[in-house]
Amino acid sequence: MKIFVCLANVPDTTTKIKFADQKFDETGVQWVINPWDELALTRAMELKEDAGTPVNEVTVVTIGTISSEPTIRKALAIGADNAVRIDAEPKDSYSVAWLLSEYLKNYEGDHLVLTGIESSDYNGFAVGGMLSEFLGVPSVSGVSALDIEGDHAKVSREIDGGLEQVAIKTPFVAIVQKGIAKEPRIPAMRGIMMARKKPLEVVSPLSFDNVTDMLDFELPKAKPQCKMINPENAKELIGLLQNEAKVL
């Protein structure tokens, strides 16, 4: 069984965000694998290494220009067997999901698709669900544990106020969140060396349309100064919360 892990290339989470010319200003930005996708990849590697599962190949798929290749190489260094880059600038969740589906729909073998629940740049929370609908396959969202037995997966998903264990047949799209793997894997030296030789297929995109656009970017407004309360009079805080902030 093959696991496809869909990767987004995003600014490092510590990036100081700036906007210029109505766009995100990329100068000086460090790019990383979207944190949830990194956890998905980690879990995919664990499943491949576990002899008890049928998983024998992990492929990462990214929609991105050549500038996303360092991030793809990092995924290969973590352990993915091969990678696919669909050569297009991501426009919105809808078009990204459609481009992914156009590539994935041709795969006929036994497989499973993993995506992260959101990407840390435009916070769309959408690609995984849209992809499953384009492919016409089931999806499970909010996945925090994933195991595979034969052609069945056992999945835990978060519901409001609890957890549900769900059984589902492959193929499907698992939209993963925190908990799916303990810590993201860090590439080892050997992995980095090997990654250079692993296959990275570049696919030309079909023509596509986005259905939404982002504009009028702005930074958050500065917060008023924090009001400090003397620790000796910590109790004062409760009065302020009640009478000044009116939140109690």
């Binding site: 435009y122 916070n123 930074l219």
Partner: peptide, 10 residues
């Protein structure tokens, strides 16, 4: 957008 480090109109 950017997990609250910015805002935009979609």
């Amino acid at each position: 957008v950017f997990s609250g480090k910015g805002f935009a109109h979609q």
